[in-house]
């Protein structure tokens, strides 16, 4: 389905519990409720909309393991393989013998890569980046209003949709 065929109408709500309850009601009435835009995270909304659980923490784990491996590899290469030094009576000729001193940097590198990797993934996946122009449906949708996005076809009877959405508690309807 191309973007041109997608058409959305919006129900504007002013209460989080009402909008969450409206999802089930409107869906049972045959409307395609696709999304809810809210000024703050609503506990259980993703479940109600049927969104899949995010896998971003798995990404963080993978980035973290990458950071851990890179740090160990770097220190092995620099301080053991390429130029071993004898410091404080502890010649660094074997990796495992120096390992206790390598732990702090390994840990920091793990956290560094996990945190930054995860946040970059989040920004890219959600397409929130400097310069992106937001699609503002209602001037107070980041303040105290909730926007429900409903997908309709070209020939849908919008008046009927509007009455259903308003019956479910919307204070305003936008098409």
């Amino acid at each position: 389905m191309s973007a041109a065929e997608k058409k959305f109408v919006y129900g504007i709500f002013n209460d989080d519990e009402v909008v969450v309850n409206a999802i089930g009601t409107l869906r049972s009435q045959g409307l395609k409720v696709k999304d809810v835009i809210s000024p703050f995270p609503i506990h259980g909304l993703d479940h109600e909309l049927g969104l899949a659980r995010t896998r971003i923490s798995i990404c963080a784990f993978i980035y973290g393991m990458t950071g851990l491996s890179l740090a160990l590899l770097m220190m092995y290469y620099m301080n053991i393989f390429d130029w071993a030094m004898d410091i404080g009576g502890k010649p660094s000729f074997a990796f495992y013998k120096n390992l206790p001193a390598f732990i702090p940097v390994t840990f920091e590198s793990t956290v560094l890569c996990a945190a930054h990797g995860m946040v970059i993934t989040f920004l890219l996946r959600s397409k929130i980046l400097p310069g992106v122009e937001p699609h503002i449906i209602h001037p107070r949708m980041a303040d105290d209003h909730f926007v429900m996005a409903i997908q309709v076809k070209e020939d849908t009877d919008l008046a009927k949709v509007e009455s259903l959405v308003k019956a479910a508690g919307a204070v305003e309807f936008k098409s």
Binding site: G88, P100, A101
Partner: peptide
């Protein structure tokens, strides 16, 4: 565990 071990190992 690590703090106690490492500091003692390090200063030797």
């Amino acid at each position: 565990w690590f703090c106690q071990f490492m500091l003692i190992w390090y200063s030797n």
